[in-house]
């Protein structure tokens, strides 16, 4: 199982987290932990770049929902970037593709 790597950078739109590896029962809490400490200024955008996401189960989905709640509490928005097909399928199944903004690439998502 590939471990999880979270790389943070700041774009003019707000924080960008590059999520690489597995969002599973073992590793998803790391992302939740990371996001809970993240300060997203009101009106800005939290971008989760999932191009390197290899696996995502229901714990991973829960972490993404936690990111959504966290941003909403800060009156910010969440954008998921480069969501792999398998995860897009799950998001669609549980109706979450309606509450997340999905973007094909990170450049566009970080340009205000």
């Amino acid at each position: 199982m590939s471990p999880l790597k979270i790389i943070r950078r700041d774009a003019e739109t707000g924080p960008v987290l590059e999520v690489v590896g597995d969002l599973d029962f073992v590793h998803a809490p790391e992302l939740r932990e990371h996001i809970s400490r993240l300060v997203v200024p009101p009106g800005r955008r939290l971008v989760l770049d999932l191009a390197g996401l290899e696996f995502c189960d229901s714990s991973g989905i829960t972490a993404l929902i936690a990111a959504h709640s966290h941003a909403q509490a800060a009156r910010a928005e969440v954008v998921l970037v480069a969501v792999p097909a398998h995860t897009r399928r799950i998001l669609h199944m549980v109706g979450l593709d309606q509450i997340f903004t999905l973007h094909p690439d990170s450049d566009k998502a970080t340009r205000s």
């Binding site: 989905i61 929902i65 959504h68 669609h92 549980v94 109706g95 979450l96 309606q98 509450i99």
Partner: peptide
């Protein structure tokens, strides 16, 4: 039932 949302995520769900 496309679009039916995971239950308990949002205060108002469709």
């Amino acid at each position: 039932t496309p679009g039916g949302l995971l239950v308990g995520v949002l205060p108002a769900a469709r």
